[in-house]
Design a protein around this nucleic acid. Structure first.
Lengths: 211, 211
DNA sequence: GCCACAATCTTGACAGCGTCAAGATTACGC
DNA sequence: GCGTAATCTTGACGCTGTCAAGATTGTGGC
């Protein structure tokens, strides 16, 4: 068992994981390069061997965030193959669950802290992959008469925005506690989705009702 | 003309305006107490006579943000009295316009940087006033058969989330440039709103088409 | 009108931050 | 095995939020 080799061995990854842990424990404003380095057991300037600046670390963390988000949604969708409406509801709920499970990580992933996308192909690839998944769900729903006919990209952005906005408002405590306790988040989500659907959303699909 | 009195006279307000100007010029991460103090022509610790900490300044800036947002929307709605659908469309577009006009101010206002609402009654009052305006628009639309019957609060949150999410995604450059240039933001907004409305949204209401 | 008090503002200090430069340590290709 | 490149440490700089101590000024009580 090596005690303290001069070279960490997997520092880049360790910093990303440290960053995610810091986000989970103390939120976005607590994330710093020096703290991530401390947690990884290296000196304060060591990260600069792997990241050009703080932005680069954040981009890497956001990329990992998108990867987890995609996997959650893909898993939820895969479980409901052949049932587009269920895929839509469960996919959306997976999005919400990720946000609730790690709010700070969700925020830093979706809050565009990574600006110049062109410089970060891995991030771009993950966002495209995730949007592609959404586009496919939307197209399947349209084919099944669950969603209205329209360009799939257009409808996909509308739906994404509706779900994302709901999550963002709740996460940022913009929705008054009175309203939020009267209508639970699952109900708010289903009510939003039901504005888009042509068929009735069965109450049996209520997210927390199942499971 | 007083040259440099020891007491500023209206420092609290000057700091808020300085902060908003900094946000407009260099974005959220450029906002600092010291820079706002510098811009107001005062020493670096002077703000502490008016704000307990940086959070308090941000809360004041967010309160002003909500005030401007409310006034924009209220003005747009007032211009279309008696036409609920137009009020809905123009109110939503006013929301979008505020976000586009000053993205950083919009972000800091809506991104829940102000956490403990209970300590800031002015902010709470503005958020409630704004939500009340939205709730009234929704109720009027329901009475006119423009929106589906449902608890007004519930539908209001859904609509708010849908519009807010769209803006947030576009502002954070999460929507691919390809999709955004194919479907303009006004079209994306109208497409989202038309998911909620029972009547067709006339193309004549296209936000940038008018004006 | 004057004085004590409170509000306001300045100066100075501290720790933590992002970032860079210089140097130490180690892995790896030839 | 050796030189080069990658990795990591140490030290420094300016910026930040925040606090303490003191200077300056407005204000109410007499």
């Amino acid at each position: 068992m090596p005690k303290k080799p001069y070279h960490h061995g997997d520092l880049r990854n360790a910093l990303i994981q440290a960053g995610i842990a810091i986000l989970a424990e103390d939120g976005v404003k607590a994330l710093s390069l020096r703290r991530a380095a401390r947690r990884a057991g290296v000196s304060h300037a060591a990260p600069y061997a792997h990241f050009a600046d703080k932005q680069a670390l954040i981009v890497a963390i956001a990329t990992e965030g998108y990867r987890r988000l995609y996997e959650r949604m893909a898993a939820a969708v895969a479980q409901r193959a052949g049932d587009p409406l269920r895929q839509l509801v469960d996919g959306a709920w997976a999005y919400v669950e990720f946000a609730l499970a790690d709010p700070a990580h969700f925020r830093i992933t979706l809050s565009g802290v990574a600006e110049k996308d062109a410089d970060h192909p891995a991030l771009v690839a993950m966002t495209q992959q995730s949007f592609e998944l959404l586009r496919r769900i939307v197209a399947d729903c349209q084919a099944a008469g669950v969603l209205r006919p329209a360009p799939a990209d257009l409808l996909a952005v509308s739906l994404w925005g509706a779900v994302h906005g709901l999550v963002d408002l709740v996460l940022n405590e913009q929705v008054s506690q009175a309203v939020l306790s009267r209508f639970s988040l699952p109900r708010l989500l289903l009510h939003t989705l039901s504005q888009f659907t042509l068929v009735e959303v069965p109450r049996s699909l209520h997210p927390t009702a199942r499971r």
